[in-house]
Design a protein around this nucleic acid. Structure first.
Lengths: 229, 229
DNA sequence: AACCCCGTTAGGGATATACATAAGTGTATA
DNA sequence: TATACACTTATGTATATCCCTAACGGGGTT
């Protein structure tokens, strides 16, 4: 069997994990490793590049590759669509629109979305249930300049999230996680008490420098967001 | 100038963003694209592979490559060391040990760490301040079987986080984010009121199937964890 | 119609080779 | 002695050419 880049990667990772290559160590260069493993330099390169992408090692031209002193521990979260998140747990998904208005962009949001004063935005408030129990409260503002179809969109049957995904194919975003105390209004919707700690994510989505939407997702009490890395 | 994989990637991304290649579309195969861009198949392969890694497209042998209907929107968080997190904001970092005990592993933790009943673990509780204001409360359990040095370690000057990073070079982990209501004890330490909503992360760290440590980090009121993607 | 087998096809990957580029290092010059 | 420049080196990337492998789909069999 020939030596694959996965073999090389696994072996290097092993040597790092076992402390044979301690953090800070300068690793052998690609040519030497290729010879040692009996493979092509491209194979070693791919292995090392992936290790670098994962933040395990640090590479610099001429300076060589070294094991990171403090590996960039990075977690990857996949941001699911609520419906799929709920249905994948085997629960029944239910949705309801609470409010939909066209309004002048509030000041605090203007800064976030970099909009002009007096510009109008669509505000949508809705709820998502799992097996009839409140799961997530969604409050969203959409910039109709980018997605004019939002002015005609009817969110009574489907949430704006799925609608937007179909409308806007790709985008970049900024996401924040935090804890908030439930307001009375929120508590009423979520079936908890005012003041209860709730997990919230806020996301601003952009299409090439122009803000599309800002969304505030508040989860039911006790919700955890989990990932492995 | 020759066509680089970045050129190809950028162009494909652009075509997807502009809706020229709508979600669900089957993209041309690598050979055809290579010909169209005037480059080698390997170049197209690298571009497409990276798009696949980022969750933009989906690849299957024989079936070809297609634009994801719902792109896996994934956020990458770098998990910083508290000291660096605080100092990078230009604040003064201060640390204090609150408690350090050797105890039998509690039942709820035994399941998480897959330890034997009656096994002893080191429990460390400490605080991290930024400019003299409470920043983060840390409660940690360490498995001394993997890191025997922990039995002699003195955490009065430095936090167990930094110590562990130096001791255990590499590991995999599971991390959770949630919101909790402050207990009276926690409130005393964090300078807030009992019941206040606080942001918490819990992390279990493993070294090849064996648990090393479980840590519970609770942040000061109003803390946000933010990332771009 | 249901099932199995096999050919075709698209991506997965290894390799040798060539050239590009960032960044240390040493040398020559002011 | 200090600075500028050239050289060297390790990684970054492109290319042509192989061969491998998963899996779709067609064709024959039960």
């Amino acid at each position: 069997m020939t030596v694959t880049f996965k073999d090389v990667k696994a072996d290097l990772l092993d040597k790092i994990a076992q402390g044979i290559m301690a953090p800070g160590t300068l690793m052998p260069n690609e040519m030497d490793l290729a010879e040692r493993y009996g493979c092509a330099r491209a194979t070693v390169n791919r292995a090392m590049r992936e290790l670098a992408d994962e933040g395990i090692v640090e590479r610099k031209r001429k300076a060589g590759t070294r094991v990171r002193k403090a590996p960039i521990r990075q977690a990857r979260f996949s941001i699911p669509i609520v419906r799929e998140e709920i249905e994948s747990k085997g629960s029944e998904y239910r949705y309801a629109l609470i409010d939909r208005t066209l309004q002048d962009v509030p000041d605090w949001l203007r800064g976030r979305l970099a909009l002009k004063p007096g510009q109008e935005v669509v505000r949508v408030v809705c709820m998502h249930w799992a097996d009839g129990i409140p799961y997530q409260h969604e409050e969203r503002w959409i910039n109709p300049e980018i997605v004019p179809a939002v002015l005609e969109a009817d969110f009574s049957a489907n949430g704006p999230n799925e609608w937007l995904l179909a409308e806007v194919p790709f985008s970049n975003a900024e996401i924040s996680f935090m804890a908030v105390e439930a307001t009375q209004d929120l508590a009423d919707h979520m079936g908890c008490f005012a003041g209860n700690a709730l997990f919230r994510t806020e996301r601003t989505t952009w299409l090439k420098e122009t803000a599309i939407t800002f969304v505030r997702l508040t989860y039911r009490r006790g919700h955890r967001m989990t990932t492995r890395y």
